[in-house]
């Protein structure tokens, strides 16, 4: 079993998330996380999908995904060739007594306090999967009361952009009248 991160550019149209989620469910592919958001192009949304490939090959998953008409482009983000990050908001138990210990942890992981009450602190942090899980381990001893975690998002290193590759789209002429024979 191995994890892969896919960056998927999709048309920003209604139902596209349902199409992708439905495909994964009906073909029994395991999703670890899925994050969707807008891109620099308002017509295009971007999904970052982390999948656990077991009995199905990654290639098969990509090809099935590519069959969805609203899916424009799929790229695998290899960890060494991309920047990947997720965001957590975590509420921990904290009093004036352990505050010093908490601050030490936060400093190590570049995390910040975004809200506090008399007995809790809410912490925000970003980073790749390993960093986030180390941080959560370090926070464990204070008592984690609530955790909200985004899916992973990722982007390729270097100057290339995925979107560039989708711009060269040709349009398809329709038949003036009568059904066009598109096949032959």
């Amino acid at each position: 079993m191995s994890k892969h991160t896919l960056a998927v550019l999709v048309e920003n149209s209604p139902g596209v998330l349902a199409r992708v989620a439905g495909l994964f469910s009906r073909r029994a592919y395991n999703i670890d996380s899925l994050a969707v958001g807008p891109t620099e192009n308002p017509a295009i949304s971007r999904m970052t999908i982390v999948i656990n490939v077991e009995s199905h090959s990654l290639e098969q998953v990509i090809r099935q995904l590519d069959k969805l008409v609203n899916v424009i482009h799929i790229a695998e983000l290899k960890p060494e060739e991309s920047v990947q990050a997720e965001l957590i908001l975590v509420k921990i138990s904290a009093t004036s007594k352990n505050r010093f210990d908490v601050d030490a942890v936060l400093e190590t992981y570049d995390a910040v306090i975004v809200d506090e009450s008399s007995e809790t602190l809410t912490i925000e942090a970003t980073g790749d999967g390993a960093k986030i899980s180390d941080l959560l381990n370090a926070l464990e001893r204070f008592g984690i009361r609530e955790l909200a975690q985004s899916g992973l998002v990722g982007i390729e290193r270097g100057s290339r952009s995925l979107a560039e590759r989708t711009l060269s789209v040709q349009s398809i002429p329709t038949a003036e009248s009568g059904q066009a024979d598109y096949q032959n």
Binding site: V69, N70, H73, S171, I172, P173, T174
Partner: peptide, 15 residues
């Protein structure tokens, strides 16, 4: 308006 062209960026069957 019958479209003269279609733009389906995610659909390109390879013939």
């Amino acid at each position: 308006n019958w479209p003269k062209e279609l733009s389906l960026p995610g659909y390109r069957p390879q013939l």
